[in-house]
C-alpha cells in the first residue's frame, strides 16, 4: 500500500529538517512564515519540539519538509539530539539584534557537525533583519499580508526616525556572520519572519543542496509512502515552490 497511493509519477522526497537556536530568536516564526506564510505573535508554545510539514516543488521534484521546531530554552538542549538525529537539514537561527544569539548558534553548529548525520546540510539564518533595515526598505520586501498582530512586543522600532537610526539595533554585522558561515561551510541568509524576506530562499537553497537522489536511493521502501496527510501544515497556499495542496489531502494514510 505504500507506493502509488498518491497516484502521481512524482515521488515526493521526504526531508527532515530541524530548527535550532536560542530562545526567542524567531525559530517558530520562521517556520510559520514558511509553512503558512503568516506572521503572528506566538500561537503555540513549543514543548520539546513542534512538528510541521510543508511540501515544495523544486524543478521537477516534490520535496516534503518535515520540520522539527525545537524549544529554545537552554535546559531543553539535552533533548535536541532526539530531534536532530537522522535530520538531513538544519536551520540554525540567531537574532541579528542580539550578539549572544550568534554565539549560541555557533555552539549548535559545532554540535551538529560533530554529532548529527554527517551529510547534514546546515544553514545559518540571521533573523529579524526587518528591525535593522531603514524605514524605506521594507516596501520592497513587504510581500506579506497586513496583519495587525505583526506589531508585537519585541518588534519595537516604533520610533520612525530616518534610516540611519534603525541600524543601531544591529549587533551582528552581516559580514561577520557570513564570514563565519563560509568558514564553517554553512549556507547563510539574513531573514525576517515578519516581512518574509529571505525565508523562501532559505528553504529553497537548502533543498538544492540536499542530495535528493541519495535519499531516494537509500530509503526506497519508506520515502515514497503517502505522507501522512498534512495536518494544518500542508494545506496552505503561499510558498511559490509548493505543489498542489489537494494532492496531499487525498493521499491520506490508509
Amino acid at each position: 500500500m505504500a507506493d502509488g497511493a498518491s497516484g502521481s509519477a512524482e515521488r515526493s522526497v521526504q526531508v527532515k529538517l530541524v530548527l535550532l537556536g536560542e530562545a526567542a530568536v524567531g525559530k517558530s516564526s520562521v517556520v510559520l512564515r514558511f509553512v503558512s506564510n503568516e506572521f503572528q505573535a506566538n500561537k503555540e508554545p513549543t514543548i520539546g519540539a513542534a512538528f510541521l510539514t510543508q511540501k515544495c516543488r523544486l524543478e521537477d521534484r516534490v520535496l516534503r519538509y518535515e520540520i522539527w521546531d525545537t524549544a529554545g530554552q537552554e535546559r531543553f538542549h539535552s533533548l535536541a539530539p532526539m530531534y536532530y538525529r537522522n535530520a538531513q537539514a538544519a536551520v540554525v537561527v540567531y537574532d541579528v539584534t542580539k550578539a549572544s544569539s550568534l554565539e549560541k548558534a555557533k555552539t549548535w553548529v559545532k554540535e551538529l557537525q560533530r554529532q548529527a548525520n554527517p551529510n547534514i546540510v546546515i544553514a545559518l539564518a540571521g533573523n529579524k533583519v526587518d528591525l535593522v533595515q531603514s524605514s524605506t526598505a521594507p516596501a520592497a520586501a513587504a510581500t506579506s499580508e497586513s496583519e495587525d498582530e505583526a506589531d508585537d512586543a519585541t518588534a519595537t522600532p516604533g520610533e520612525a526616525p530616518a534610516s540611519g537610526e534603525s541600524d543601531s539595533l544591529r549587533q551582528v554585522p552581516r559580514e561577520e556572520a557570513e564570514a563565519y558561515a563560509q568558514e564553517a561551510g554553512l549556507l547563510f541568509f539574513e531573514t525576517s519572519a515578519k516581512t518574509g524576506e529571505g525565508i523562501v530562499e532559505l528553504f529553497t537553497e537548502i533543498a538544492k543542496k540536499i542530495p535528493i537522489d541519495q535519499i531516494l536511493a537509500s530509503s526506497r521502501g519508506g520515502a515514497g509512502r503517502p505522507g501522512a496527510a498534512g495536518a494544518r501544515a500542508g494545506a496552505q497556499e503561499g510558498v511559490n515552490l509548493e505543489e498542489n495542496a489537494a494532492k496531499s489531502k487525498d493521499s491520506c494514510n490508509c
Binding site: E66, G222, A228
Partner: peptide, 10 residues
C-alpha cells in the same frame, strides 16, 4: 503502519 517520527506525531 507508521514508518517514522513524523508519521507517529501526526
Amino acid at each position: 503502519q507508521i514508518q517514522d517520527d513524523g508519521g507517529f506525531i501526526q
